[in-house]
């Protein structure tokens, strides 16, 4: 991938790191995800699947009815926004250009390089670990939505619920998808904290020229 450092996320202005659609859907998604996760924890607490509950103070909704109302309101924001992002990702070539290919060898090499702080962070191009994480979280979000649909409508969408192993198992799938997303979020925010110069471009779309080719050291 010799041309990687030259290809920016989009065919637009050369200094555009993130296209507008990606930036808007990213922050709408972050907001919707947080509403879904925090209200979901409260719903989980009403009938825990495993031997623990989430601290009520960390949850959204004040009581089960409130949490469900939040969850079933924010799900529309999450799903519609996610759809816009995925359609854009495929139609514009953003996914193919920036998330693909993901080769296990590259992931391993980049992962080792990152651990030894030898991995250069080039704004506008994702290394293989990032590609894997981003494609992975898009998959997890889709899994959360599909499993969510199957436990919301286990009769009307019965074939879907059946595919996911029935109502009770689909609940577990839904929980695991949430857990994976929370895990991603922890790593994701830690990495942004480690390389803070990535933060402003996710809002403005542009990087200060001096930051181009910056390394994490």
């Amino acid at each position: 991938m010799a041309d990687m450092s030259m290809s920016h996320g989009s065919g637009a202005a050369a200094d555009e790191v993130h296209p507008l659609v990606v930036r808007i859907t990213h922050w709408v998604n972050a907001f919707a995800m947080i509403l879904m996760i925090l209200s979901g924890w409260r719903i989980y607490n009403a009938s825990p699947i495993f031997g623990f509950r989430f601290p009520d103070q960390l949850t959204l909704g004040a009581w089960l009815g409130g949490a469900l109302a939040w969850h079933f309101a924010a799900m529309w924001l999450l799903a519609i926004n996610g759809l816009v992002y995925v359609v854009y990702g495929f139609a514009s070539g953003h996914f193919k250009r920036d998330f693909w290919p993901i080769r296990p060898v590259d992931v391993w090499n980049d992962f080792r390089a990152a651990l030894t702080f030898k991995l250069a962070h080039r704004l506008g191009t994702y290394n293989s670990v990032q590609k894997l994480l981003y494609a992975g979280v898009v998959f997890l979000a889709a899994a959360a939505i599909v499993s969510g649909l199957s436990i919301w409508k286990p009769v009307q969408f019965y074939p879907l619920t059946w595919l996911l192993g029935g109502y009770d198992f689909a609940r577990i799938v839904h929980f695991l998808a949430m857990s994976g997303i929370v895990g991603f979020l922890v790593v994701h925010i830690a990495l942004v904290a480690l390389v803070p110069s990535t933060f402003v471009p996710m809002i403005t779309g542009r990087a200060a020229a001096a930051h181009e080719g910056e390394t994490t050291r």
Partner: peptide, 30 residues
Amino acid sequence: SLGALTMLTGCSLDNPAAPDFIDRVLKGMS
């Protein structure tokens, strides 16, 4: 609870007698 969310958690259909703005949005979505 992430700043703004603190304000949201206080008003989640937990007092049907006195609905606030958030309650009305949640009711509308329901």
